[in-house]
Amino acid sequence: MLELKGLVKRYGSTPVFAGVNLALKPGEFVAVLGESGVGKSTLLNCIAGLDTLDGGSVHLDGQDVTTMAEPEQALLRRRDLGFVFQAFHVLPHLTVAQNVALPLLLLNRADDARVACALDEVGLGGFGDRLPQTLSGGQLQRVAIARALVHAPKLLLADEPTGNLDAGNAGRVMDTLVRQARAHGTACLLVTHSHAAAERADRVMELRSDGLYAV
């Protein structure tokens, strides 16, 4: 589902990482550990085409993302990718249901029943009409998971999804993330500094400046 071949990223003359290789199967869950500043978020941005690479290639479901024009990359992101971030990125002026519906609306596939089902799946049935500011951090992250998976993406990218949560909420969010990704058959790539979160994965890798290494 995802294949990374020899990824290289620099900022000017400053190297971030090089020689990053990874193959991720459909439905597989891989966690990437690494110290702050090693480039974990940058790696996800490069995979999604939100940041440029200085070498190597990214293939998603057989398509070379790195050679696509920006409009093609944008369509691929809307159609085939889901994102969960540490800061939630839930829009405060929209209701919970409207937030979850966004990926479907961008694909012209509005489906209120699917949104309601997605909220039920993450334990937030009946929360659709509420505004984000009335929810806890753990609930907001579950909204973000429902939004990321509502359009059945092929790949889920999760960037420190438990970083802003206490241990109890972090565990519940990881339970939801793993359960939902597996239920949808979605490949998942999680980057984190949390060993507790990484332990939920099928495989754990460590990102270093010279590549990815099995832990």
Rank of each mutant, 00 (worst) to 15 (best):
E35P: 15
E35R: 04
E35V: 04
G37T: 01
V38S: 11
G39I: 12
G39A: 04
K40N: 12
K40W: 14
K40S: 13
K40A: 09
S41G: 06
S41K: 08
T42L: 05
L43G: 02
L43S: 06
L44N: 03
L44Y: 10
L44M: 04
L44K: 12
N45Y: 15
N45S: 14
C46Y: 10
I47M: 11
I47T: 03
A48G: 04
A48N: 03
A48K: 03
G49S: 06
G49Y: 15
D51H: 04
T52I: 05
T52L: 04
L53K: 09
L53D: 08
D54A: 00
D54Q: 09
G55I: 09
G55M: 03
G56A: 05
G56R: 08
S57I: 02
S57N: 11
V58Y: 08
H59L: 12
L60Q: 09
L60T: 08
D61W: 04
D61V: 12
G62F: 09
G62E: 01
G62M: 06
G62P: 13
D64G: 11
D64W: 02
V65P: 05
V65Y: 12
T67W: 03
T67R: 01
M68G: 05
A69K: 09
E70D: 13
E70R: 03
P71K: 09
P71L: 11
P71H: 09
E72P: 11
E72Y: 13
E72M: 12
E72I: 03
Q73I: 09
Q73R: 12
A74M: 05
A74R: 01
L75F: 13
L76N: 07
L76K: 08
L76I: 03
R77L: 02
R77Q: 02
R78A: 14
R78F: 07
R79K: 13
R79Y: 02
R79N: 01
R79Q: 10
D80W: 11
D80V: 04
L81W: 06
L81S: 01
V84H: 01
F85M: 05
Q86C: 14
A87S: 15
A87D: 14
F88T: 00
H89D: 00
H89E: 00
H89V: 02
V90H: 09
L91K: 00
P92T: 14
P92I: 14
P92R: 05
P92D: 12
H93D: 11
L94I: 01
L94H: 05
L94Q: 02
V96N: 09
V96Q: 06
A97M: 10
Q98Y: 02
Q98N: 10
N99M: 05
V100R: 14
L105G: 08
L105Q: 14
L105H: 13
L107H: 12
L107C: 10
N108W: 12
N108F: 08
A110D: 05
A110E: 14
A110N: 13
D111F: 15
D112F: 15
A113M: 13
A113E: 15
A113L: 13
R114Y: 15
R114V: 02
R114H: 11
V115Q: 06
V115E: 07
V115M: 04
V115W: 05
A116F: 09
A116D: 15
C117H: 15
A118Y: 11
A118V: 04
L119H: 04
L119Q: 01
D120S: 00
D120P: 00
